[in-house]
Design a protein around this nucleic acid. Structure first.
Length: 1045
RNA sequence: GCUCGAGUGGCGGAAUUGGUAGACGCGCUGGAUUCAAAAUCCAGUGACUUCGGUCGUGUGGGUUCGAUUCCCACCUCGAGUACCA
């Protein structure tokens, strides 16, 4: 009977859906296990073979845990708010909800075809009002909270009001805005409610503040730091500029230390923890204040001419090296620093203003790209050194960032390379304060063991001692104090977009008010256009019904706004990471209308035991999610401190893009290996030879491939990139196809493409090149092939690397590039095609077989036949020709040994997430059982269970044929028994000077001496020794024998 | 620049409390079967070789009876991060 995978898979997928096989219960006596995938954003492009990799791994683990008797929660859902659907809406006018719905449908179809054991009854969608109701609710909780640094915990804002009314704010140690003035309880009681609200806002864990944000004009929105890559937006690659705007922010910085410390408690990869550590960026040092001198000593001028001195009393700097304070020879402020205007002397004003204007014009990106150019201006002002009381000149320079620390540095050129370069460039003094350090060429940055010199009371002290002493001294004299600084900034939480969660906020006299929780969700209004309004308001400003009636608690038309009972609602929406920060908890209790997750459900499921997803979320989702979990724990809504106990990053599956070049000159060589046609003989050359022979041309082509492509491509004869089907306009990024290719063409061709004179098409790599390229006279016949199989002809050029000569003696060179799979690169392989041609079980096992889960690896459809053949072989074990047949007799010792060896290895592999090696183990097992002609139930039944997590469809089918009426999912996992593997002999490798020469089969119960004697008595040993006595004989029983000559 | 990770056949990759390097699969070669192909099955497949062997896990050293595995130095590639004071 044939292995009819299409039929089997459809049958069991239907069975699982109908019987709700994977529905998890919240009340169970069994131990729980929570396996979660990062839920996908449902893009218009659908899934490619790279997406399911992590899902397959987690699915195998979930199914394995079920066999092991765990109550497994393995849900799936959609992160369905986001930019692409909105961009598409802007371009086409289609409502994002509609496209999102369609995309989800398509995703679901694709996912179902792969046979995942998701509990779909728990599906969540972040864009669903039933879901974002709770996202809004959590936002309100943030608003109603403040952070007490003494308890290191978030508390209710009402407790803070309580404290204020009793003792004012003097003793409150809160994570809050820095510009808060002290007040007493009496003063608090005299404040108007408005003034109180204003003050409280500075303490809330989500707050409204004018902050400098990353503004992306093309996307029309602000972006968080982790949404910017290399100074451009992660999505779309548009420039980002700094801009001051009033925005909602989340006070994540309050949690910096906990987020850092708790990394030690979770089982994540070291590299991921490391990137979070870098992102949090803790540095320990001191805050030092340098008083401002209006003018240097001895240059006193009349009062009227004095530069205004700063009200703040001085320049505050943060430094990690306060021990080098005697090496300070100047100070540098960021051009944006607020003191700059106040301290600049009239003589320097013009120059300073010009510099500020110039650096403001430079985009973030330019500033980053241009690290080497040293620039700065003297302000004319001086500060006073806190210890020497010497005047220190104050400069401004754009190597100092406004956003880090205080936006000012004390420059120690002898110890910091940037200060050193700056000092050299502007001819500022460099004082050496290190013993035995050469600073003639560069700064000295040593720490441990360094001895400080020329530094008054610090001289002669080592780095660590000096550090302690100087901080003590600073605190004593009131010039500074020890301080820990974090790079982690508060997260901007507003987006000027339509397709996101609306804030449950309305404004009364400019002060934000929360809509009370019982009136949630505040649903997204309809708008005519998804673009910003003409006055520059976010898209929600286009809605004519976006006002809040505080009497009836309903949304009402804007014209009813009276600022008495009816107020304007917030126009911003929440960022993409809002919904994804807490979704793991919603799966535990997805239909609860009373709360975001019930206490019972959360306490049963706790948190995620195993989380699988991409490492690109290292500093975004994974950090925010930890932040929200800690917050909700503080406020008593959760019992766990961390969302994800163990995390695995699956590596990316890379696609292959190819470039073809047609050259005018002829290269008389082709590589038949690279064309996977078979049968006829042809000239065969190794890749190495091939590359050697065409070195010159290749180098030319590689260096100038764009040019070669442009000059040689014959566009009238159809473009090189051709497909079986027309390029579908990508829903995410229309026009993407042309854009992606445009750099390959010259202007004339580009314009012709734009005029639609040519259609550019693409082809996925997954075509089977099963047609011969060789004609009857044993010649490479590209023209003939092209005519008979145009679709394969082009696929060949896209998919295969090599050199080709056609009938006109024109040579084509095809080179591949391995890169991220993406629709815009035309290198996408669709899992549906694989399921159609080979089956889901083959796809699942092949993806696992490709290599270690965490490693990036290129996709190559060619290798899939190996796995497919393995499944056919497995099927054959249970069949005798056409008939299903298993024997009830006892299995042979060999077969039992094979089985138990497999149980042992596969179980170990699953526990270690080494899925690639377990697939080989299955192959070895089936190969051995085939040779043994094993068809006993005693072996084949446990084998079916063993493989069920990997290839669930075939396992179910075989399980049913074995006579079971219930699903294999309920079957117990086979138990490994040592007794079947006990060996009596060992095939010892016998080495001479560490080199293995031959092997000897010896009983395992021999003593060391017996082994040694037997080996020495052997003829082959005597040959090796050629009469001499060995200097030494090493015998490791059960392992090896080594003789030293 | 800094941090982390990795370098093994034609390819994807196995093997590390130090103990037979290259499991398993792809590709390739030869054979069986076939009118022919596909599919399937069998055998072979690291390099060199005077068929005795010799060399071989990025490079150069070291420790050891024995090193892909441990130590030192270097090279290359990948990922993250970047004027962080």
């Amino acid at each position: 009977m044939k292995y009819n995978f299409n039929e089997i898979e459809a049958k069991w997928q239907e069975y699982w859906a109908k019987n709700q096989t994977f529905k998890a219960s919240n009340t169970s006596e069994e131990a729980k296990y929570y396996v979660l995938d990062m839920f996908p954003y449902p893009s218009g492009a659908g899934l490619h073979v790279g997406h399911p990799l992590g899902y397959i791994a987690s699915d195998i683990y979930a199914r394995y845990k079920r066999h092991k008797g765990f109550n497994v929660l393995h849900p799936q859902g959609y992160d369905s708010f986001g930019l692409p659907a909105e961009q598409y809406a802007i371009q086409t006018g289609q409502h994002p909800a509609v496209t999102t719905e369609n995309n989800i449908k398509r995703y679901r179809e694709q996912l179902d075809k792969i046979g995942f054991s998701f509990d779909w009854s728990r599906e969540v969608r972040t864009s669903n009002p039933d879901y974002y109701k709770w996202t809004q609710w959590i936002f309100i909780q943030f608003f109603e909270s403040w952070y007490d640094k003494e308890q290191d915990k978030s508390l209710a804002i009402s407790e803070l009001e309580e404290i204020f009314s009793v003792e004012g704010n003097k003793r409150v140690k809160a994570a809050c805005d820095e510009d808060i003035e002290e007040f007493t309880a009496e003063e608090w009681s005299t404040f108007t409610s408005e003034e109180k609200q204003k003050i409280l806002l500075k303490y809330r864990l989500t707050y409204l503040a004018e902050t400098e944000v990353n503004w992306c004009p093309q996307l029309g929105t602000v972006l968080a730091n982790d949404e910017i890559v290399n100074g451009v937006s992660e999505r779309g690659g548009y420039p980002v500029v700094r801009k001051k705007m009033t925005q909602w922010s989340m006070r994540i910085s309050a949690f910096a230390e906990r987020l850092l410390q708790d990394l030690d408690k979770i089982d994540w990869t070291e590299s991921l923890k490391e990137s979070q550590r870098n992102w949090i960026g803790k540095s320990v040092g001191a805050m030092v204040e340098f008083p401002i001198l209006s003018f240097p000593k001895g240059e006193e001028k009349a009062d009227s001419e004095k530069a205004p001195s700063s009200g703040a009393g001085g320049i505050r700097v943060f430094t990690t090296r306060p021990d080098t304070i005697f090496g300070v020879t100047f100070m540098t402020l960021a051009p944006e620093h607020e003191l700059v205007q106040k301290i600049t002397t009239p003589e320097q004003k013009e120059e300073v203003d010009a510099y500020i204007a110039a650096s403001a014009k430079r985009s973030e990106r330019e500033r980053m790209a241009d690290v080497k150019t040293i620039s700065g201006v003297f302000t004319g002002a001086y500060a006073e050194h806190p210890f020497t009381k010497e005047p220190v000149p104050i400069w401004i320079g754009d190597y100092v960032l406004a956003g880090y620390g205080t936006g000012a540095v004390m420059a120690v050129p002898c110890g910091d390379q940037r200060d050193y370069d700056f000092a050299k460039h502007y001819d500022l003094p460099i004082n050496n304060i290190f013993e035995n350090a050469d600073i003639s060429e560069e700064a000295f940055s040593g720490k441990e063991g360094t001895v400080i010199a020329n530094s008054d009371f610090l001289s002669g002290l080592k780095y660590k001692e000096a550090l302690q002493k100087v901080i003590l001294e600073l605190e004593k004299t009131g010039h500074g104090y020890g301080k820990t600084n974090y790079r982690l900034r508060d997260a901007v939480f507003s987006r000027q977009r339509y397709w996101g969660e609306p804030f449950p906020v309305y404004y009364v006299k400019g002060m934000p008010q929360m809509i009370s929780a019982e009136h949630l969700p505040l649903t997204l209004p309809e708008v005519e256009k998804y673009l910003p309004t003409e006055t520059g308001e976010p898209p929600l400003g286009n809605s004519t019904e976006w006002a809040w009636d505080t009497v009836n608690n309903v949304i009402v038309p804007n014209q009813e706004i009276d600022e008495e009972t009816i107020f304007r609602l917030e126009l911003n929406t929440m960022p993409g990471w809002a919904g994804s920060s807490w979704y793991l908890f919603r799966y535990m209790d997805p239909h609860n209308e009373e709360t975001f997750v019930s206490k019972e459900a959360q306490e049963y499921w706790q948190n995620v035991d195993l989380y699988i997803g991409g490492s690109e979320h290292a500093t975004g989702h994974l950090l925010y999610s930890r932040f929200w979990t800690k917050f909700l724990k503080d406020r008593g809504y959760l019992s766990v401190e961390e969302p994800f106990k163990k995390l695995i990053n699956q590596g990316m599956i890379l696609g292959t893009s190819a470039f073809s070049f047609k050259l005018g000159n002829t290269i008389e060589v082709y590589d038949r290996n690279s064309l996977s046609f078979q049968g006829k003989t042809g000239e065969s050359k190794s890749k190495k030879e091939l590359f050697e022979n065409v070195t010159d041309d290749l180098n030319t082509v590689k260096d100038k491939y764009k040019k070669a492509f442009i000059t040689k491509i014959d566009i009238s004869d159809k473009p090189i990139f051709i497909s079986r089907k027309n390029m579908e306009e990508s829903q995410d990024e229309p026009g993407q196809c042309e854009n992606a290719l445009s750099h390959l063409f010259d202007e004339e061709i580009q314009s012709r493409i734009q005029n639609k004179e040519f259609t550019i098409r693409y082809h996925p790599y997954s075509v089977h090149t099963d047609v011969s390229l060789i004609n009857d006279s044993n010649q490479l016949d590209i023209d003939g092939f092209k005519k008979s199989r145009p679709e394969y002809y082009n696929a060949m050029f896209i998919g295969e690397e090599g050199n080709f000569i056609d009938g006109n003696n024109d040579t084509y060179i095809v080179r591949r590039e391995v890169e991220k799979m993406s629709k815009s690169k035309y290198n996408v392989v669709n899992p549906d095609d694989i399921c159609e041609n080979y089956g889901a079980d083959t796809l699942r096992m092949y993806e696992m077989f490709l290599g270690p889960l965490e490693q990036a690896k290129p996709w190559n459809t060619a290798g899939i036949t190996g796995v497919h053949n393995f499944l056919k072989k497995l099927w054959k074990l249970y069949h005798n020709g056409e008939e299903f047949q298993v024997s009830e007799e006892k299995a042979s010792a060999d077969s039992l040994k094979t089985l138990h060896k497999t149980i042992k290895k596969v179980t170990e592999d699953i526990e270690n997430f080494s899925f690639n090696t377990s697939v080989s183990t299955f192959m070895i097992c089936v190969n051995e059982l085939s040779v043994q002609n094993c068809n006993q139930r005693e072996v084949l039944e446990p084998l079916a269970v063993l493989i069920a997590p990997y290839a669930p469809h075939i396992a179910e089918e075989l399980w049913a044929k074995l006579g079971h009426s219930d699903s294999i999912v309920t079957a117990e996992y086979p138990v490994y028994e040592e007794k079947f593997l006990v060996e009596s002999t060992k095939n010892y490798p016998v080495s001479f000077n560490g080199k293995m020469r031959f092997t000897m089969e010896l009983p395992l119960d021999l003593s060391k001496e017996e082994i040694e004697n037997t080996v020495l008595a052997d003829e082959r040993t005597k040959d090796q020794l050629s009469g001499k006595a060995p200097k030494k004989v090493i015998v490791v029983p059960g392992k090896i024998v080594n003789l030293v000559i």
